[in-house]
Computed example of a mutant assay.
Amino acid sequence: MKYGYARVSSEEQSLDIQIDALEKAGCELVRGEKVSGTSREGRQELENLLQFLRKGDALVITRIDRLARSLGDLSDIVQELEAKGVSLIATEQPIDTSSAMGRMFVSLLGVFAQFETELRRERQLEGIAKAKKEGVYKGRKADWDRIEQVFNLKRQGVANTEIGKRLGISRSYVWKVLRHQEDMIFQ
């Protein structure tokens, strides 16, 4: 059985073209989501499909960058599929991991997808550095209410990961807030 996966990076983008292509490719079920492909985090529809797929099934995508933007994620997904006996097919690229040529091609495209992501990140950092130098970009303003909530929860003995979950912020931001407090105390 063929199952389709469609993904776009933002809410403003449409999944319609991908869904149409996947249905034309014979997918009986198509799942889609609007979330960044730079990591697997937060991609619930992809995780649901990966849990659902069984031996002999095929996961169909339009292009490899709809599935993963990093070589590590792509490799992990392909290994999961292979371990289950599931093939990966891309409608717009010569990828079908049921063949040696398809497996080789998916690896090559993964390298290029990661390279593209890294180039985009470098350009973004260069733009931010330039804007900071020109005094245009100063970063995000501190959210003092949120910072106080972090401190209050920490005083209550709540772990950093749990603080992040409760407040809807990343664990690294919690660490940054708490580390900044320590720096201020010990100066």
Results as ranks from 00 to 15, higher is better:
Ser10Gln: 15
Glu11Arg: 15
Glu12Tyr: 02
Gln13Ile: 12
Gln13Asp: 03
Ser14Glu: 13
Ser14Arg: 08
Ile17Thr: 09
Asp20Ser: 14
Lys24Met: 15
Glu28Asn: 00
Val30His: 15
Arg31Ser: 08
Arg31Tyr: 15
Gly32Asp: 10
Lys34Phe: 11
Lys34Gln: 07
Ser36His: 07
Gly37Thr: 08
Gly37Tyr: 06
Ser39Phe: 03
Ser39Arg: 07
Arg43Met: 01
Glu47Phe: 00
Leu49Ser: 02
Leu49Trp: 00
Leu50Ile: 01
Gln51Phe: 03
Gln51Leu: 04
Gln51Met: 01
Gln51Ile: 02
Gln51Asp: 05
Phe52Pro: 01
Leu53Ser: 05
Arg54Leu: 01
Lys55Asp: 14
Asp57Leu: 05
Ala58Val: 03
Leu59Arg: 04
Ile61Lys: 08
Asp65Glu: 11
Leu67Lys: 13
Leu67Thr: 11
Ala68Leu: 06
Ala68Phe: 13
Ser70Glu: 15
Leu71Thr: 05
Gly72Phe: 03
Gly72Thr: 11
Leu74Glu: 09
Ser75Asn: 14
Asp76Asn: 07
Ile77Met: 07
Val78Trp: 07
Glu80Lys: 08
Glu80Cys: 14
Leu81Val: 08
Glu82Phe: 00
Ala83Gly: 00
Lys84Glu: 04
Lys84Cys: 00
Lys84His: 07
Gly85Ser: 04
Gly85Trp: 05
Val86Tyr: 12
Leu88Val: 02
Leu88Met: 13
Ile89Val: 14
Ala90Ser: 14
Glu92Leu: 11
Gln93Glu: 06
Asp96Thr: 02
Asp96Glu: 02
Thr97Ser: 00
Thr97His: 08
Ser98Met: 00
Ser99His: 10
